[in-house]
Design a protein around this nucleic acid. Sequence first.
RNA 1: GGUUCUGUGUCCGAGUGGUCAGGAGCUGGUCUGCAAAACCAGUCACGCCGGUUCGAAUCCGGUCGGAACCUCCA
Length: 472
Amino acid sequence: MLRLYDTLTRQVRDFEPRVAGQASLYLCGLTVQSGPHIGHLRSGVNYDVLRRWLVHSGYSVTFVRNITDIDDKILVKSLEQGRPFWAIAYENEVLLEAAYRSLNVQPPTYEPRATQCIPEMHELIGVLIENGHAYPAQDGSGDVYFSVASYPDYGALSNQRPDEMLAASEGPERAKRDPRDFALWKGVKSTEPQDAYWSSPWGRGRPGWHIECSAMTYRYLGPEFDIHGGGTDLVFPHHENEMTQSRSAGHPFARFWLHNGMMDLGGEKMAKSVGNIINIAAVQARGLRPVELRYYMLAPHYRARIEFSWEALEEAATAYQRVEGFVQRATELAGGSEPTVVSADFAAAMNDDLNTSAALAALHEVVREGNTALAAGDLNAAREALGSVRAMLGLLGLDPFDPAYAAGEDRGIRETVDALVALALQQRASARERKDWAAADAVRDQLKQAGVAVEDTPQGPRWTIGAERHAG
RNA sequence: GGUUCUGUGUCCGAGUGGUCAGGAGCUGGUCUGCAAAACCAGUCACGCCGGUUCGAAUCCGGUCGGAACCUCCA
């Protein structure tokens, strides 16, 4: 039985889906105002693992992850660059998709963009105005606000009392009745790109931030769905406001609220505005692979904060390589095995609020057993361990044989390298035969410099192309 | 001011009222011409002060430190 920590009730609860056998998930995706950094990608990886685990647990999963393709920052860039807002949004969306792919994050079932749901937003806002939860501004600005005072439970998700909150200040205070009221619809401003507006019953304008998610969840998942996820930084005001407006419209909304911890660097949340960001390209420039980054992100629990450091990432890479090494050697020696069953410890860990940290510990147990079997020549036991290890790796999206990680590997080149290395190893073998250790080691050292690591095994030498470590 | 999270061994990082986290590192051993990999053994712990308890790192109170949110944010 899967148990998940729910932010709203602030406790770990049994996951009971709305419809037996089905699970509906909504993840607040990114605002595509720039390329993603690894902090952004953490939520994608975390919820990808949740999704895989739900599928493994027998659920039919509908997973929606949105793209916010219009917001203040995108509009500012639009003006700065003299390009339509959608050009900027789409450019960054493409970068985001590439980053997800490199990390083996599966595409969601649906990936709506905020601007694709404008009619649904209008409908929702209309309902809220009708039932007295929202009001069009009286100053002719075209803004429509949600009235926080109309919803007694406001603050339930973030556990705050409205009277103790600092007043929100959403730009110039136009015509809010209460400073805590938030915009559902923003009327035209002469200072913004004029191609970023839609007509509406309240005049030309653009969406407020929170309404998009309420509209998209309703359209793709219905008035009630199982899990709503996002980073902890979204709890307030974004998720609080989403829940408030959807419930005010009569929708029960999310049954579970999941929030992942932040990726920090230098003691602060990784953020472009702080300037402490690391992206995938920087990781690769350091000689580390995306799959190793993914392992690093799954090593701690999803709700824990990660204080990023290269040292810790490199340690994680070493740990992953240990697992990877077993998978490769076991496959070579014991023959391939399709993924089989996960260990009981692994399943228990995953069911316990997705404790990937404990799950990885369970994985390493089986890897060690498999290595022991290989050392003892017990190929049956090794093959059994291999199947289990691959099953567990697959659920974490870390299987080294996953085609997602083979991208960019050119088979033709691989064969050429294979032949060249074989030639070099022949020379080394003959040097070893005449006990010319210096010559033999020279061959090995040169291969090493070229990025080819040679190991002698009872079955003869084997070689692997290691990730090139950074040189300082 | 309010809300929430957090402080574990050399490092990363789980967890539970009493019995092994796991990984990285280091030391010793096995194997190897040497290495590498692997295996075996060892290494090292719960911010501080009180309290509850037969027993607490795990519960409670206090205290010190760090972070997130209350403004755009994964």
